[in-house]
Design a protein around this nucleic acid. Sequence first.
DNA 1: TTGAAAGCGCTAACAT
DNA 2: ATGTTAGCGCTTTCAA
Lengths: 328, 328
Amino acid sequence: MATISDVAARAGVSTATVSRALNGKSTVDPALAEKVREAAAALGYQPNGLARNLRRQETAVLALVISDVENPFFTAIARGVEDVAQTSGYSVVLCNSDENAEKERRYLDVALQERVAGVVLSPTGGGTDVSPLLGRGTPVVAVDRPLDAVDGDQVLVNTKCAADEATRHLIEGGYRRIGCLTGPEGVRTADDRLAGYRSAIADSDTQQETYFRRCELRTAHAKAATLDLLDADAPDALLVVNSTMAIGVLEALRERGLRPGRDVGLVSFDDAPWAALVDPPLTVVAQPAYEIGSIAARLLLDRIADSSRPPEARVLAAELIERGSSHR
Amino acid sequence: MATISDVAARAGVSTATVSRALNGKSTVDPALAEKVREAAAALGYQPNGLARNLRRQETAVLALVISDVENPFFTAIARGVEDVAQTSGYSVVLCNSDENAEKERRYLDVALQERVAGVVLSPTGGGTDVSPLLGRGTPVVAVDRPLDAVDGDQVLVNTKCAADEATRHLIEGGYRRIGCLTGPEGVRTADDRLAGYRSAIADSDTQQETYFRRCELRTAHAKAATLDLLDADAPDALLVVNSTMAIGVLEALRERGLRPGRDVGLVSFDDAPWAALVDPPLTVVAQPAYEIGSIAARLLLDRIADSSRPPEARVLAAELIERGSSHR
DNA sequence: TTGAAAGCGCTAACAT
DNA sequence: ATGTTAGCGCTTTCAA
């Protein structure tokens, strides 16, 4: 593979000139520059990014570490990040931590070792440690879930409030035994949404007890937990914390011959592409996923440009979209 | 940030010894090795991957370039790739080409410049050029769609055959004006599935004409195209080439007050997580997406280990899963 | 077993 | 405007 010296030799100039000509830095005699470009083209020269990055001590790539590639909420965030990164000349590499702290740690290590310019991260659980990144000066912005013990940039959703609102909506719909299906303890969104549910129930004068289950944020687990909840507590409505789990819930309901809305009221977080297509259409708490991603990327780029900026925490609003599954 | 020389100084050894100790290469005196590890830990030493890669001329990362992160088919492939890469110590970075040849080219450039160890790619259209990668010795395996003009490793699905089978299934179901909604010309899967549809119709003695529309592989485009097809040709059944488009089709049907199955038979490619939940459940052609990914990764790793292996083309089978949408 | 030293390919002072 | 040169941080001969 041709190197910069090959190009220099062929064009009859120094490597420095080649570098300058190809990077459009400083001023180079147009004629020479042209010669260089010709030589580069003739040799099929492809700059070695590794060498360049090593020398420059920086990389034009952003790492995006998300907890589930198969969740449309996160892929929408990914698109948001990518779209703004793109326009600033950054590439973004997506790493799937799979709700697994160990995988997450590994990807964070890779990000550090590869000296990416910045990281957008949706932390899996409580124990995420980004201090090595921060220590080295690599900015990190948290999305969806906060990074505790770190006062950094973050883009979150007012999720407790949204859960409260969704629960009230079910109460108003006449449901009297509302349950909640949420994720593992320590996953902040799972905890917050459960808290929102609880506060709405506590405020109600139609329901005293709470009925909830925690399980992994996966379809199969959600289905099993729902079956269990159904059999044990016979709830007449359910608040579900994401669309992946909602699929499991719908499967469980079907298995028990229960119809969403009529038999069991249903509200789920995340307006998945299919949410309006099931029967009855699913009432959801829509989160502005794309915006979360684009804002996070913007925050990150801003901080890369100026590391002294004070940390910014953005909290976006979610929107309850009423459809058939929350009415009898 | 601490470098290898800092560690060497602190441990009172040479940088060579540090490198050897930390990489477990060659033999190092256990006592010294321990001292080195201590020094490294004390300094919070994080090896600079850039420098290492530059020296080694290789990277333990695989690039996966897919055409749509929001399509569950591709995210399932991603999981397959990741799972096997993981076990061999490789990280995989996911790049979303977004069915956009320009973006794809950019990511392929990045992959080349960053000297990734290998690339798994689902080519957007016809014009994809991987020769720079290949020329430099970076192996590429194509998934879902072939790389024309290159005799390389690839993992495909016998998609024409599957489309033919799906169409016959509709014919047997008694549908007599079967249409097809497919992707842009040049997207091999779109062309093959259309061909499969055509061959089934040609073989039938119940239908002479074909009714089809091509549009971008997106929900909104699919909806518009379906509306158009419905109004112009009044098909009584539809074969749809992926689940993203199927959503648009279902929306269109609903808008026209047409019920899947009873009014318009429906078969879609890809068994999306929600496919069994819509009403009636969606008959699909399920592709072994996870296997496509895992096999592709294995092929890639094999080739990285031994570049002289003859190229291997694997063609997996798809499976028709009959559900309610293809019966009256 | 260990160290000295070369060098991966590039960019950025510095000198001209 | 261009060239010379040092050096980014690491691994790997080569010698000792």
